[in-house]
Structures are given as C-alpha cells and as structure tokens.
Amino acid sequence: GDWICPDKKCGNVNFARRTSCNRCG
C-alpha cells in the first residue's frame, strides 16, 4: 500500500508505486 517517507523532515505519504520518497530534501 501507500507508505510514508522515513525522513522526519518530509513525512509525506507516497503512492505504493513509488520506489523512493516524493519531494524529499
């Protein structure tokens, strides 16, 4: 399913099809 970026500065939910965090950094 969808997953949350492990980066504390991010924390946005990513679609399951993504293999990396979206809009992190």
Rank of each mutant, 00 (worst) to 15 (best):
G11L: 11
K8V: 04
N14L: 02
R18S: 14
R18A: 15
G1F: 07
R18M: 15
K9H: 12
S20W: 05
I4L: 10
C5F: 00
A16M: 12
P6M: 13
G25V: 03
K9C: 05
K8C: 04
R17W: 10
A16K: 10
N14T: 04
R17D: 10
K8W: 09
W3M: 09
D7E: 10
K9M: 15
R18F: 14
D7S: 05
F15S: 14
R23Q: 12
C10V: 03
I4V: 14
P6V: 05
K8I: 12
G11W: 06
R17K: 15
A16I: 09
S20T: 14
D2G: 05
G25P: 04
G1E: 13
R23Y: 05
C5M: 02
C21R: 01
A16D: 12
P6Y: 12
G1S: 09
W3D: 02
R18G: 13
C10N: 01
R23T: 10
D2Y: 02
N12G: 06
G11N: 01
R17P: 15
N14E: 05
N22W: 11
C21S: 01
V13A: 10
G11I: 03
C5Q: 00
P6H: 08
N12C: 04
C21K: 00
G11S: 12
K8H: 04
S20I: 08
F15K: 14
N14M: 04
A16N: 10
T19W: 05
T19E: 05
R23W: 06
G25S: 07
R18P: 09
G11C: 06
C21E: 03
P6F: 08
D7W: 03
I4E: 10
R18D: 15
V13P: 15
G11V: 03
A16V: 08
K8L: 06
N22V: 13
C5E: 02
C24Q: 01
N22G: 14
P6W: 10
W3N: 08
R17H: 15
D2S: 06
G11R: 12
C21D: 07
D2C: 04
R23K: 15
C5A: 01
P6A: 15
G1R: 05
V13I: 11
W3T: 06
R17C: 07
F15G: 14
C24K: 01
W3C: 07
R18H: 12
C5T: 00
V13W: 07
G25L: 05
T19K: 10
G1W: 01
G11K: 01
G11H: 05
A16T: 11
W3K: 04
D2E: 13
I4P: 01
D7V: 05
P6L: 12
I4C: 03
G25K: 09
C21G: 02
G11M: 11
N22K: 10
D7Q: 13
I4D: 05
G11P: 01
I4A: 09
N22Q: 15
R18I: 15
I4G: 04
T19N: 09
K8Q: 06
A16Q: 13
G25R: 04
K8D: 10
S20Y: 09
C5Y: 00
N14A: 02
C21L: 01
K8R: 07
C21N: 01
K9E: 09
R18N: 07
A16L: 08
F15E: 15
K9A: 13
G1L: 08
D2F: 00
G25Q: 07
N22E: 15
D2I: 03
D2N: 12
N12W: 02
K8T: 11
S20E: 12
F15N: 15
P6T: 13
G25E: 06
C5V: 02
K9S: 10
N14G: 02
C10M: 04
G25A: 05
R17G: 14
T19A: 05
I4S: 05
F15V: 14
S20P: 04
G25Y: 02
W3G: 02
N22L: 13
T19H: 09
K8M: 11
K9N: 10
D7T: 02
R18T: 15
R23E: 09
P6I: 13
C24P: 02
D7M: 04
D2K: 03
C10T: 03
V13R: 09
S20L: 06
I4M: 08
I4Q: 08
R17F: 13
C10K: 03
G1H: 01
R23H: 14
C10P: 03
N14Q: 04
K9D: 15
K8P: 08
F15R: 10
C21T: 01
W3A: 02
K9Q: 11
K9W: 04
G11T: 06
N12M: 04
V13K: 13
N22Y: 06
C10S: 05
K8G: 13
N22H: 14
S20D: 10
G25F: 05
N14W: 00
C10D: 06
F15D: 14
P6K: 12
W3I: 07
T19F: 08
C5R: 00
C5G: 01
R23S: 11
G25M: 06
R18Q: 15
K8A: 12
K9L: 08
R23V: 12
K9P: 07
P6C: 07
R18K: 12
T19I: 09
F15P: 12
V13D: 05
R17L: 10
N14S: 04
W3Q: 08
A16E: 13
K9F: 04
R23C: 11
T19L: 09
V13Q: 09
K9G: 11
